[in-house]
Write a protein that binds this DNA or RNA. Structure first.
Lengths: 231, 231
DNA sequence: AATAAAATTTAGACAAATCTAAAAATAGGT
DNA sequence: ACCTATTTTTAGATTTGTCTAAATTTTATT
């Protein structure tokens, strides 16, 4: 058996728990050289630091993470590949749920968390094909391709832009149901044009125009909306 | 909280292992009053009888099975409902894989075994709708409705019919990949008309006509094909 | 540089699901 | 009805993933 096959075999027999750790470490930035703290992982996963330590050892044994006692965790190349594969599945399933089954963007996360662990390469490739190879998920996040590459769209937080600037809404930072429902209620959606009419010095809140409608939004809202500026 | 909600809540937090036991017990006939032997369950699930005993106690505690020491296991009403819900999901996913993703009927079982455990009522109802509420899965097995009812089509094993009789192929008993691939190779598929031309006394093998083509099949093959006789 | 605070690891325990080996109950044959 | 063979259960161990509490290492502060 070749070395490559060993890695593939390993990734095939990963448990749900292992996959969730790998995914979380990736989202916390563990794909770079900077190691992620045990505590940070524990907090994100709503578990205890001691559990993270145990899992870090196991994942290190499997060659998925770099781990030195007291020094935190970062992903190996194999770990990054695994993380991207899980994220690819998660985001493709989200697109499927919205495009094919009429889920709203605040309903997809929970179900995709389950579907991302289904083991079948053919299944996810066929879903990809059915959806016509989408590049972004319903929250504007890029979908890694089969070989782990993905588009990084240049985008800025609405809260970082100045009055007068306008652009297209291309993503959300917070993907929680309450936030997404708030956006729906106020007519904010991906693809819509947003113009900053006025910026309030006192609390950083914004007067914006979204398509034809005018709206007042807090800094907190604006700092969770990604916009691509018009050229 | 009403009694009904308690049952629903319980079914929601069933583990994968519990669901697999319930499903197996149903398939072994545990929905009738006749209890299923520990050994039979163990053999079907490729596990040990002692493991079955442990799980039987747990499922009895949850009110899903009737269990008395040394007397085998049968499903309660709640257990039957649970089993039908799992089987519904399994078969709907099979239809989805074949109709929407071009899986062949020998490829669907393994993936559906995973998909059947996804927890989302909305998801499976939407899949049902997307498929236009199919009544049968790709192997001809009936799909229970949301409320647990399903069609029982009258059908007979090809091996039980006499020479001269003809009918439509409506199902397979064995759903293993090798058997299904054999059928594909020989042009046998659901919906095709089969006529028994001659029955060999010696080994019960059959000369059949399938649509326009003639074929010789063993008793073993014939005893795994369901046919609905022409009126 | 010493010490206090914070982060991390270890040690030991627990629940779920499984196993093996031994004990107990049932069923079958004469 | 008795004895044997089979089935089933119990008891105790194992693995995975988790926890708490205590010990250790790192970091921050003076």
């Amino acid at each position: 058996m070749t070395n490559k096959n060993v890695i593939l075999k390993k990734s095939f027999l990963m448990t749900r728990a292992e996959e969730n750790y790998i995914k979380t470490i990736f989202h916390l930035g563990g794909h770079s050289a900077v190691p992620i703290a045990t505590n940070a992982i524990a907090e994100q996963m709503e578990t205890k630091p001691s559990s993270v330590t145990d899992m870090a050892k196991k994942l290190a044994e499997k060659g998925l993470v770099h781990y030195k006692r007291y020094q935190g965790v970062s992903l190996t190349d194999s770990g990054i590949k695994t993380a991207l594969s899980i994220i690819r599945k998660h985001r493709l399933w989200e697109v499927f749920l919205v495009k094919k089954l009429d889920f709203t963007w605040d309903e997809v996360h929970e179900v995709a968390e389950q579907l991302e662990h289904i083991k079948s390469e053919k299944l996810i490739d066929k879903i990809d094909e059915l959806l016509d190879f989408p590049k972004y998920d319903p929250h504007g996040d890029p979908i890694p391709s089969k070989d782990g590459k993905f588009m990084v769209r240049d985008k800025e937080l609405l809260s970082d832009l100045d009055a007068g600037v306008s652009g297209v809404c291309v993503g959300v930072k917070d993907t929680s149901a309450p936030f997404l429902k708030f956006l729906d209620k106020n007519g904010i959606a991906l693809g819509k044009t947003i113009t900053i009419l006025e910026k309030e010095d006192f609390d950083q809140s914004l007067h914006i125009k979204i398509e034809t409608q005018e709206l007042h939004i807090s800094h907190q809202i604006a700092s969770n909306l990604y916009v691509k500026k018009h050229d």
